[in-house]
Computed example of a mutant assay.
Amino acid sequence: MKNLKMSIAVMLLLAVSFTNAQEKEKMNHKHGEMEMDHSKMKMDKMNPAAETVLADYFMLKDALVGDDTKKAAQSGSKLVASLKKFDKSSYSKEQQKELADIIEDATEHAEHISESAIDHQREHFKTLSKDITDMVAITGTKSTLYEQFCPMYDKGSAWLSTSNEVKNPYYGSKMLKCGKVQKTIQ
C-alpha cells in the first residue's frame, strides 16, 4: 500500500512537471510570435522617404556638431530636396495633413540653414529638430533614435541622434558633451 501511494505521488509529480514544461513551451512560443509581430510592425513603419529625410537631418546635425558652417549649409540644401520629395500618399488623410504642415515648416528652416552663418543655422536647427521628431512620430523609423536635450541652449533645446552619446549641435566644440538623453525612440 505504501509503495502504491509512493508510485501515485511520483506519477502526479511527473504529470505536473510535464504540464508545466508544456505551458512554459507555449508561453515561449507566444513570446516568439509577439517578437515577430513587433519586428513586423517595425518593418511596416519603415518609410524609405522618411529614412532619407532622417539621413539628411543627421548629416546636418553632425556638421553643426563639427562647427562646419559650409557642410551644414550643404546638408540643409540636401534636406530641402529630400523633404520636397517626401511622398505622403501611404498615410491617412489626417496624417497627410499633419505631414504636409511639418514638411512645409521643416523645409523653410532647412532653407534658412542652407543660407546662413552657423549661429543662425543653430537657431533654425532647434525648430527643425522639433519638426523631424514630429515627423518620426507619424512615420516611424527602422532605427533606434535618441532624443537628446541641452538645458543651456535657448532655455532648453532638443535634437535627435542615432547614438546615445551626447554630441551637442547647438554648441559644437564649445560644449560638446552638454546635454542628456531624454527619450529613446524605437
Rank of each mutant, 00 (worst) to 15 (best):
V80T: 03
D119G: 12
L54C: 06
D68Q: 01
L64K: 03
K130Y: 11
S39E: 15
Q96P: 10
S92N: 02
H29T: 10
M135K: 09
M59T: 12
G66F: 05
F125W: 08
D62F: 03
K167L: 00
L4A: 14
K30V: 15
T141I: 09
V166N: 03
S143V: 09
E104S: 15
K177T: 11
E25Y: 12
T133C: 00
T139Y: 07
S161I: 06
M6W: 13
A110F: 08
F125P: 05
D37W: 12
L128P: 08
E108M: 13
K88T: 15
L145M: 06
A100R: 10
A49V: 09
S161N: 11
A110W: 08
A137S: 13
K40G: 00
E115Y: 06
A63E: 08
N164A: 09
D87T: 01
C150R: 07
S143D: 14
V53G: 05
A49L: 09
D62R: 00
L128T: 02
S157W: 04
E98N: 14
V136D: 12
G172C: 05
V136I: 15
L160C: 07
C178D: 00
P169G: 06
A106E: 03
V166R: 02
D131T: 06
E104Y: 13
E23L: 09
M11Y: 14
I113Y: 02
S163L: 05
K42R: 14
K24C: 06
Y57N: 02
E35W: 09
K167S: 04
E108Y: 11
S116M: 02
N47S: 13
E165T: 09
L64C: 04
L4F: 13
K167Y: 01
V10K: 07
E35L: 15
E25H: 09
A81W: 05
D105M: 08
V166E: 08
D101M: 14
L14F: 15
V10L: 14
L13G: 15
D154Q: 11
Y171N: 01
L145F: 07
I102Y: 02
N20Y: 12
M1S: 10
K2R: 15
S129T: 00
E165Y: 03
K85C: 01
L4N: 14
A49S: 13
A55K: 12
L54R: 04
E147Q: 15
K84M: 10
N20K: 12
H112R: 11
A100G: 07
L14P: 00
M46C: 07
L79H: 10
S82D: 14
I8F: 03
V65P: 05
A110H: 09
K40Q: 00
A100Q: 10
D68P: 05
E25R: 12
G172Y: 07
K24S: 11
K84G: 08
T162R: 09
V80W: 00
T133F: 02
Q186Y: 09
N20R: 14
S143C: 05
D68A: 04
V136N: 08
Y153Q: 05
Y170G: 00
A137V: 07
Y153K: 01
L64I: 10
S161Q: 08
A55C: 04
K183F: 00
K85D: 01
V136E: 11
M46R: 06
L64D: 00
G66V: 01
A49I: 06
A117N: 13
E123H: 11
D134L: 05
L160S: 09
L79R: 07
T127M: 13
S173T: 11
E123G: 10
R122S: 07
H29Y: 13
S82F: 06
T139D: 05
A73T: 07
K180A: 08
M175L: 01
I113W: 02
